[in-house]
């Protein structure tokens, strides 16, 4: 897009990427996306007992413009899916998604006409978190997994363009989720 695309790649850019990744992972603000019972555990993770503030993310933003992490906690009905996608689209760009609980991840025990069978039909999911509902420790564990990813890769400049091309090519070749069979469906 702008200047960052024109940056040359090399040692200095690599160090900058490390720094950016560390900064991003140290202050990640989740958007409020509690859809069902998992949201209770998500709120519990913010209480003093588990204290998400230790990882710089105690502020659950009600505005998607100020958030960079979406914790989809709860079953997503077909009616909610477009809303979810809209909120995701409104988040500003370096953004991540944790699919919290089995209902969000795959539909869980609700294998029926009302529930989207996995939020990855609608959004790109970075970390899947099983459990019904997952205990707050499990959520914190998933968040730390995400932090590891974020610290590793914050592609900038040339790297970013390369990676975006690779990701797009991989996505075009992948089997669509709705065509997956067996346990993956």
């Amino acid at each position: 897009m702008g200047l960052e695309e024109k940056l040359p790649s090399g040692f200095v850019l690599g160090k900058v990427e490390d720094l950016v990744g560390w900064v991003r992972s140290s202050s990640m603000w989740p958007v409020t996306m509690g859809l069902a019972c998992c949201a209770i555990e998500m709120m519990a993770a913010g209480t003093p007992r588990f204290d998400l503030a230790r990882f710089g993310m105690e502020v659950f933003r009600a505005s998607p413009r100020q958030a960079d992490l979406m914790i989809v906690s709860g079953r997503v009905s077909h009616k909610m899916a477009p809303v979810l996608r809209t909120v995701y689209d409104q988040m500003s760009d370096p953004k991540w998604v944790i699919s919290m609980g089995v209902c969000a991840s795959s539909g869980g025990m609700f294998n029926n006409y009302a529930i989207v069978q996995g939020v990855d039909h609608v959004l790109p999911v970075d970390v899947y978190l099983p459990g019904c509902p997952p205990r707050p420790e499990m959520l914190i564990n998933a968040i730390l997994e995400l932090h590891k990813q974020v610290i590793k890769g914050a592609p900038l400049g040339e790297h970013r363009a390369e990676i975006n091309r690779a990701v797009e090519a991989a996505a075009l070749n992948a089997v669509p989720t709705q065509e997956m069979k067996g346990l993956l469906a």
Binding site: S106, Y128, P130, N141, L184
Partner: peptide, 13 residues
């Protein structure tokens, strides 16, 4: 054991 988070659907089977 409850630390089960994973990055892909395939890994979670």
């Amino acid at each position: 054991d409850y630390e089960l988070a994973g990055t892909t659907r395939e890994k979670m089977i």
